[in-house]
Design a protein around this nucleic acid. Structure first.
Length: 285
DNA sequence: GCCACTGTTAGCAT
DNA sequence: CATGCTAACAGTGG
């Protein structure tokens, strides 16, 4: 599942696109498009990448002419970068199913051909999407009105008051992307465990000190996950086809029935807001 | 072969 | 507005 750390890794790998010109487009399935194929062709062809960045789980490709290509990977989306004829890393860490020669396969919806590289957009479940928008002035803020702040663009004190003013249970609130954008199921469970907070706890009822502690732990968990290349559970791979390794460091996610690494109590799994939720009943209150 | 399960966002209900 | 529930989808595993 691509969440903030996975998207951050992808964005870092995509930095090499900067300055390159788009020479050809292949739209293999229109289902993931949030705009017309005509507008995409017109806006992208012969255009150049100025910058690639991230907001929450959204990937933003800034182009000339105030155009921004917006990509979201949903649950199973992948971006794969091919340099001329070979992928950046061969063999090690690559998946059988994604054997580079196979691309584009039936789950590849979109291909961008650049000078010396191709970008493949794959998404098995098609929950992801691609859009092309023209941003002027505050248009970007307007476009992202529905999502909250990126955890790395806000200060500790601000986040404390942000959460202090919400009445919802902390886990569904964080998954909503409203106050903060970027955490998904894995990193919410991992952060709440390390912060010692029960996923059903209402944020307004947590002390400012505990909310501050939550913020510190969240930053640490995300930074460590980014540094470890993200979590490769089902589909996630980096654009060069390699795996992340943070899944090997998960404390609670996917560990139900196993002993808590801190106190030895058995990790429980419940349903919360329709989502699987793993936590330690003794450490998280 | 069937069915439950996986978890993201959008959209609708409360 | 704030919060909660469910549909959309395709593959996997029991």
């Amino acid at each position: 599942m691509p969440e903030l750390p996975e998207i951050e890794n992808i964005v870092q790998a995509l930095q090499r696109l900067k300055g390159k010109k788009i020479e050809k487009l292949e739209i293999l399935s229109g289902e993931v498009l949030r705009t017309s194929p005509r507008f995409l062709e017109k806006g992208l062809l012969e255009n150049r990448f100025l910058a690639v960045r991230r907001k929450g789980k959204y990937i933003l490709f800034q182009l000339e002419d105030s155009l921004t290509l917006v990509m979201h990977l949903g649950m199973t989306g992948q971006i794969l970068l091919q340099q001329s004829t070979s992928f950046l890393s061969q063999g090690e860490g690559t998946r059988r199913v994604l054997d580079r020669a196979d691309l584009p396969d039936k789950h590849t919806h979109f291909v961008i051909h650049c000078q010396e590289s191709k970008l493949y957009y794959r998404d098995v479940r098609k929950f992801g999407f691609i859009n092309l928008v023209r941003f002027h002035e505050s248009d970007e803020d307007n476009y992202f009105r529905k999502i909250g702040y990126d955890p790395f663009e806000v200060k500790r004190e601000f986040v404390i008051s942000l959460l202090k003013n919400r009445k919802a249970r902390i886990k569904p609130l964080l998954l909503s992307q409203k106050p903060l954008a970027g955490l998904g199921n894995i990193y919410v469970d991992e952060t709440l465990f390390k912060a010692g907070i029960h996923p059903k706890h209402k944020t307004s009822r947590l002390s400012r000190a505990r909310l501050g502690h939550f913020f510190d732990v969240m930053r640490l968990v995300l930074e460590e996950a980014i540094e470890k290349g993200g979590s490769s559970i089902d589909d996630y791979v980096r654009p060069d086809g390699s795996y992340g390794s943070f899944q090997n460091f998960h404390q609670v996610y996917g560990r139900e029935g196993k002993p808590c690494p801190r106190c030895g109590a058995l990790i429980r799994k419940i349903r919360l807001g329709g989502r699987g939720t793993s936590f330690c009943p003794r450490c998280q209150r």
